[in-house]
Each structure stands twice: as C-alpha cells, then as structure tokens.
Design a protein around this nucleic acid. Structure first.
Lengths: 194, 194
DNA sequence: CCTACCGATCGGTAGG
DNA sequence: CCTACCGATCGGTAGG
C-alpha cells in the first residue's frame, strides 16, 4: 500500500467523517451529513475522495498501521515479556486517548468494509493478534505470566482497555496518567486485596 | 412498561433481526433483509411489528432487563462484596454466552434508538452502573478490594468481559467453564506471576 | 399474509 | 468547488 500524500482538505474531511461515524455509525452517516460538517456541497466532497467507502477504508487501515507499527517496535525491544506487555498497554491506551474517534471506527465499523478490504483488514488483525500471543507465550515460558490459555489472556487483556476511547470526549477528558497506571495494575495484579 | 405477550412469529422476527443487526449493524440492515430471513414479504412484517425501530427498542430493553434484574438479585444476596462481584461476572458471562446476538445489539446499536427511548435507555444504564459502583465501594470499604477509582474499576471490569459474546458464534462455541473461571481469576488476581 | 405502490433519501455523476 | 440531476433503495401504507 503506497502512502500517497493527503491534502489538508482531505485530512479535514477524514477527521469530520471519523467523528460522524463514531457517533452515528458508518451506515447511518450520509454524505450530506459529512458535506454539511465540512461546509461543502455533497458533490464537492468527490473532488477529494473517491467514495464513502474509501473514507472508511482509509480510517480503518490508518488505525491498523498505528497498532501494527507500534507492536513491531515493541517486539524488537530489548526487554522481558512483562515490559513488552507494559508497552502494549501503553500503546493501546495512547492510541485510545489520542484518536478516540478513528479508534471507534476501527473497532466498530470495519464490518462495513467491502469484501477485498475486509479480508485485508482481517489479515492485519490476525497478524497483530499473533504478535501479541507470541509475547504472552514468552511471558508464560519465562514464568512471568500465569499459564492461562492465550486466547482468553489476549482477549481479556485487550478488551479491558476498550472503554477508554469510548469514555473520552471533549466534555469528558480523562486523567491519562491515573487511568494508565491503574488499568495496568489491575491487569497485572488484579483488584482483590490480599 | 407493561410486558405484552409476544407471539411465536414475533419472537422469530426479533431473533432474526438480532442476528442481522449483530453482523450488519442496525442501519445497514433493511426490512427486506429481515423479511427474506423469516420468509415473508416486507409488508407482512408490519402485521407483527410496528416499525424497524420498535424491533431495536424491544431488543435493547429486553437485554437491559436481563442485566437489571440480575443485578437486583445480586444486591439482595446475603454475601460479601467479593461474592457479589463474582456473581456480577457470572451474570455478564452468562448473558454473553446465552444471547450473543442481542447483547451485541444492546452494546453497539443502542445509539440508533430514537430520542425518547434513548434517554430511557441511558437512564437504565446509569442506574445499573450506580448499582455496580455501590458494590465495588462496599468491597473497598471492607478491605476486600483495592482502593482504585470507581469509574476505572467498573469500566475495566465490565469491559474485560466484553469480548465473549463477540467471539461466540455457531462455528465457534466457547468453553464456558474455562472462560468463566479464568476471566474471573484474571480480574481478581491479575496475570502476573508472583 | 400478499400485491401494488409511494415519497424520501441515499451515494454518486455530468458538466462546467 | 457548484448546479442540476439520476437510478437505486429505503421504511412504510392502502387495500384486500
């Protein structure tokens, strides 16, 4: 996938779309909604984008890249599995806080991708999960992590952070430091005293 | 809200709708899709339901009831906070496994509710979260739980189970006993060894 | 439960 | 970037 430069106007359209898709969903957002939001006529949108679907594709794969490139760096770290898991949690929490709208699209709207892009997307996700599981397995092998099934471990871990982007709105900023600190502690050491 | 009896045919329509909404989303599911799925003409659907929105409303509030009634019973239990939290996790995991489709609608499609129902829905959710937080606070007060902010505690806890309904499909049954057991352990005691 | 049908809205194009 | 416009599809109704 060659990365073509994205004009300022196109960025603006993509950002507006991410916000609309976040709150209304992809299918319920019309190109008229989007045009109004960016102050253009509907037809003018098509000078900057090819189709509604192209927007969704761009948004989904951009987020996919954020995760994949982040994980790549973590895998190459000279660190033990626990430190890598810490870094994975940082990665997810940072992305959630920095890109709450596009991450919601990434999480909830990918199902509207068209066949080709959908398959590609699922492939990216499978790769990502494979990388995560390798790190978890490494943690188990080194006796740093409890020996739980990888699927449950990964899903519960990733899922436990999947509320931050959702809670975070302009009216409801979240305390990044505290949230990050406590979610990590919860995952590593649990909530039960003793 | 008086509970009127629901005919067998209407049940069938609601179930089919839940599955369609789960995989395609509410907005992208047409009444034609639904009619085809239940083997009727589109117009015939309207002998059983008032509108597409009525279906969504019914689905969302039915799930809301499952959670609310479950929590009510837990609150009345003669048990300590840790046992109640255990019961809350059972409640969520059971609902996820027994009703994966309608729970997905409940989680992801409520935003398409119309204004009145939306406000009612959010009220139900706020009440539910208040109940959860009271139990968590109880746990903190009795020194059973670590003293973390209630918001983070609740969101992370509930969120950590929010993948089970999603993973569970007809082709991919999940081992209820193991999943339940391990997710609970992860939440209470963490994943780190030591 | 079906046939026949409707107004509204959708994503998108032609042409400038 | 806009005016003008289009075919397709939408949720839903009338009438039987």
């Amino acid at each position: 996938m060659p990365k073509t430069k994205i004009s300022r106007r196109k960025r603006e359209i993509l950002n507006a779309a991410a916000v609309l898709f976040r709150y209304k969903g992809y299918a319920a957002t019309s190109m008229r909604d989007l045009a109004e939001k960016v102050g253009l006529e509907v037809s003018s949108l098509y000078s900057h984008i090819k189709s509604k679907e192209e927007i969704l594709t761009t948004l989904c794969f951009h987020c996919g890249d954020l995760y994949s490139e982040g994980l790549e760096k973590i895998i190459e770290m000279d660190a033990d599995a626990l430190q890598k898991i810490d870094a994975i949690m940082d990665l997810h929490i940072n992305i959630a806080i920095d890109h709450p709208s596009s991450i919601t699209v990434f999480n909830d709207e990918w199902k509207h991708l068209s066949e080709n892009e959908l398959q590609q997307f699922l492939q990216v996700r499978r790769n990502y999960e494979k990388g995560i599981k390798q790190i978890l397995q490494e943690g188990i092998d080194c006796n740093l992590l409890k020996d739980y099934p990888l699927d449950i471990l990964m899903n519960t871990m990733l899922s436990s952070m999947r509320w931050i982007h959702y809670i975070k709105t302009d009216n409801n900023p979240i305390d990044t430091k505290i949230t990050r600190d406590i979610v990590k502690k919860m995952l590593l050491n649990g909530v039960a005293r003793k």
